[in-house]
Computed example of a mutant assay.
Amino acid sequence: MNATIRPLGAALAASLFAAPLALADSSSLTEALKDSETRLHLRTRFEDVDQDGVEGSSALTQKTRLTYSSGSYEGFSLLLEMDDTTALTDVDYNDGTGINTGTAVIADPEGTEINQAYLAYQAGDTALKYGRQRILLDNQRFVGGVGWRQNEQTYDGFSAKSTALEDLELFYAYVHNVNRIFGESVAGGDHKHQSHLLNGAFTGLNAGKLVGYAYLLDNESAPGLSSDTLGLRWEGKLSDALSYNLEYATQSEAGDNPTEYSASYLMAEGLASVQGFKLKVGYEVLGSDDGNAAFTTPLATLHAFQGWTDKFLATPATGVEDFYVSAGRAVGPVNLALVHHTLSANEGDSDYGSELGLVAGTKVGPVGLTFKYADYSADDDSEGWATDTRKIWLMVAATF
């Protein structure tokens, strides 16, 4: 059935959009055009990486994004978005596309491409999209946009989101292509899929929100990343100052994945606001199947988890256990946060290492300023999984 979904989806979208536009009243279309909006986003970033075992790297890159969103006519609208990433200095570092091997990776390759391009239809509390689009689910641990990198990850396909039923939020997407951060001009940059993403949230409980999901990934470009993941997430609230999150999921191979495995995911964290401080303590496990294969999250915004030095973009076969604590507060106009991770194997008794991170951010008018630092110290018992790594970022961003 999957093989027929893409052409059927294209035909359905064409029929849905063609009829109303053919009958459109010119004055109504004029009003829709008047309601359109164009935005320009600029982000300049300096990144420096010092990593044991390879030559250090530094990069100064410029991200330019131009977004056009139309007004609505009879519920129909469109969005077009172009992204460009340009290196402002020589590209003498490994940008993740296979060049300058032996140097530390800074995964911001140069390139210009369509970031989003979709037709949308809004019918009451239900929104449909067809085309290239951003998909961000829950905290992006399983499906996200990798927004930290200069080239965002977006998805080609069809999606539907509805809040038509009381206290229930439903989302479904069929994805046939994932536009990864390395750019479509690079071999293996995009991944072809026949994947289904389902997510439902029940918000009718005073104590919190219950989320259930099924992410059925059939990755044709990288079959080893094909998996079926089923899970539940609970976002609980004890008071305005105290909350907690609990999550559990199971995963097994799917599609043409050559490895048979079964692994689980577990997360528990508590959050508190105390005298201006935002505190968090958490424990996350990406389980292992007897050291042969481990729980993976290939569509996640991985930079937000297990440390900012990105040592665990791929899960080791022995899995990962991450105990983390963070504290943040505003000091005048500056928001500060400090986070610490202690990382170890789920299978066996190896300690991978620890990471300390610091971030400071502020805004001056429309301009956002960010300083970010991360220092990963590999443990002697890490079995060579990762090496000592220090990263520094300086970033200026603005949207007009």
Rank of each mutant, 00 (worst) to 15 (best):
N2D: 03
N2V: 12
T4M: 12
P7V: 11
L8G: 11
A13F: 01
A14M: 07
F17N: 02
L23P: 10
S36V: 00
H41W: 07
H41D: 12
L42G: 09
V49L: 01
D50E: 13
S57L: 05
Q62F: 02
Y68M: 00
S77H: 02
L78Q: 14
L79W: 14
E81V: 09
A87Y: 01
T89W: 05
V91W: 06
G96W: 05
G102R: 06
A104G: 06
V105Q: 15
N115A: 08
Q116F: 02
Q116K: 09
A117D: 13
Y118W: 07
Y121N: 13
Q122G: 07
G124R: 06
L128M: 05
K129V: 07
R134Y: 12
L136P: 15
N139P: 13
R141S: 11
W148A: 10
E152Q: 12
T154R: 11
Y155C: 03
Y155V: 00
T163P: 03
L168I: 03
L168F: 11
A173C: 07
I181P: 00
G183D: 03
G188K: 05
G189M: 00
L197I: 01
L198F: 04
F202M: 10
L210R: 10
S221E: 15
S226M: 08
G231W: 01
S239H: 11
D240V: 02
D240Y: 03
S243M: 02
S243Y: 02
E247R: 09
A249G: 02
Q251G: 01
A254D: 08
E260I: 14
A263S: 08
S264A: 06
Y265R: 07
V274Y: 11
Q275W: 13
K278D: 09
K278C: 08
L279R: 00
V281A: 11
V281F: 05
E284G: 15
E284D: 15
N292H: 15
A293L: 09
T301W: 03
F305T: 00
L313D: 04
L313C: 03
T318N: 10
T318I: 11
Y324R: 15
V325D: 11
A330E: 06
V331R: 12
P333S: 06
N346T: 08
E347K: 09
E355I: 03
L356P: 05
L358I: 04
G365R: 13
G368L: 01
D375S: 06
Y376D: 14
Y376G: 06
D380H: 13
D381A: 10
D381I: 07
T387Q: 15
T389W: 04
R390L: 06
I392Y: 08
L394R: 08
V396D: 06
